[in-house]
C-alpha cells in the first residue's frame, strides 16, 4: 500500500536527482549504510529511545524520584538538617487534628470552586464580546491577556497595595463618594480576605478562559447559527442550544486545567495574605510551605502537599477517560 503511494514520487525524484544533486543527501547511501551506528539509527525504536532519553532522564530525576521521596517524607518525621525516621501515618493524624489545616482544606475547595466558576462565567462573557467585529479588536484582545502574562507575584503586589489598610484606592473612592465613613480593612478579616483572593485570582485567570473559549467560538460555523435563527431561535437559545454544545469539549478541558492550577495555587495567596489574618486564608500549598519551610518540619509539610494528590488524580483520570472517549 505504502509502496504504491510513493512510487510516482520515486520516479519524479529519481529524475530530479539525476538533474541536480539533492541538498539533503550529503553522503552517498552506500557510505552511510557502512557504519553500524547509521544502521542502528535507521531502526525507529532505537531512534525513538535516543530522542526520548533526555526528557525521560529529567522527568525521572526531578518528578518521579521527588514524588517517591515525597511519599517517604510524608510518613517520616524529617526536619531540616536532621535525618528522619519512619512514623507511619502520624503526620496525617496530626493534620486532621489541626484546626488550621482543616480550615486550609476547606479554603482550598472554596477558593477553587468559586474562582473557577467565576472565571468560566466571566471568561465566556468576554469571549462572546470579543467575538464581535469592532475597532482596535487586535490590540484590545492582546491587552486582555496582560494579567495572565505578567508575573503573578508582581501584579499581586499591585493588588496588595490597592487593598492596603490605610491607603487603599478602593477606600479612597468609596469615602470620597460618601458611600462609607470608615475604612474597610480588605485583608483584615478572614472571609473578606478570601473574597479578595478570589477576586484577584479571577482577574488573573479569566483571560486564559476568554482567549481559549474565543478560539473555540471561532471554530463554530456561522451557518449553524443562521440556520437556528431562521428556525426562530433567539440569541439566548442559540447560545445554550447551539454554541455551548459545540464548544463544550474545549470548555471542559480549560475548566480542568484551571481547576488543577487553582487547587494547587501558592503564589497569589502567599503574596497577598501569607495565609493570614490569623491563618484563616491558608490553602494546601501555602500551609505546606509554612510548615515545611518556616517551621522546618519537612515530613509534616510533605504530608500536607500530598493531600493535593487524590484530587489531582481524579482530574487526570477524568481527562484521560475523556480524551480516550473523544478519540
Amino acid at each position: 500500500m505504502a509502496d504504491q503511494r510513493i512510487e510516482p514520487i520515486l520516479t519524479d525524484s529519481a529524475r530530479l536527482a539525476a538533474a541536480i544533486p539533492s541538498p539533503v543527501a550529503v553522503a552517498p547511501p552506500e557510505a552511510r549504510r557502512a557504519t553500524w551506528l547509521g544502521l542502528l539509527l535507521e531502526r525507529e525504536h532505537v531512534l525513538a529511545g535516543l530522542l526520548l532519553a533526555p526528557t525521560l532522564v529529567i522527568l525521572t530525576l526531578f518528578i518521579a524520584y521527588p514524588f517517591v521521596l515525597g511519599i517517604w517524607l510524608a510518613v517520616s518525621d524529617k526536619m531540616v538538617g536532621r535525618p528522619g525516621s519512619f512514623v507511619g501515618l502520624q503526620n496525617f493524624q496530626v493534620n486532621l487534628n489541626d484546626t488550621i489545616f482543616l480550615r486550609a482544606f476547606q479554603n482550598t475547595f472554596v477558593y477553587t470552586f468559586i474562582a473557577t466558576a467565576l472565571k468560566l462565567a466571566l471568561g465566556m462573557a468576554t469571549a462572546l464580546l470579543l467575538n464581535h467585529h469592532f475597532h482596535f479588536k487586535r490590540i484590545i484582545r492582546a491587552s486582555m491577556l496582560l494579567p495572565w502574562i505578567v508575573p503573578t507575584v508582581l501584579s499581586t503586589l499591585a493588588w496588595q497595595w490597592m487593598f492596603d489598610a490605610t491607603f487603599s484606592v478602593f477606600n479612597w473612592v468609596l469615602m470620597n463618594a460618601g458611600l462609607i465613613s470608615k475604612r474597610i480593612l480588605w485583608l483584615g478579616d478572614g472571609t473578606l480576605a478570601m473574597g479578595c483572593l478570589i477576586a484577584v485570582n479571577v482577574w488573573r485567570g479569566m483571560p486564559f478562559f476568554a482567549i481559549t473559549l474565543l478560539a473555540g467560538l471561532q471554530t463554530v460555523n456561522p451557518d449553524v447559527h443562521e440556520a437556528a435563527e431562521i428556525d426562530g431561535a433567539n440569541a439566548w437559545q442559540r447560545f445554550w442550544r447551539v454554541t455551548l454544545p459545540l464548544i463544550k469539549p474545549i470548555m471542559l478541558v480549560v475548566v480542568l486545567f484551571s481547576m488543577i492550577a487553582t487547587f494547587a495555587d501558592f503564589q497569589l495567596i502567599y503574596v497577598l495574605t501569607r495565609g493570614g489574618p490569623y491563618s484563616s486564608t491558608h490553602v494546601f500549598g501555602t500551609y505546606a510551605y509554612e510548615i515545611a519551610m518556616r517551621a522546618a518540619k519537612l515530613g509534616q509539610g510533605a504530608s500536607i502537599s500530598l493531600f493535593l494528590f487524590p484530587f489531582l488524580l481524579m482530574v487526570i483520570v477524568f481527562q484521560l477517560w475523556y480524551i480516550r472517549r473523544s478519540d
Binding site: I63, P66, D265, A288, G301, L312
Partner: peptide, 21 residues
C-alpha cells in the same frame, strides 16, 4: 500518556522533596 500526566503535576505537590533533591 506519562508525559501528559507530568504536564498536569503542579509544583506545589513536589517542592518539598524537590528541595531535598
Amino acid at each position: 500518556m506519562v508525559i501528559f500526566i507530568t504536564y498536569l503535576v503542579p509544583p506545589t505537590l513536589l517542592f518539598i522533596p524537590l528541595g531535598d533533591v
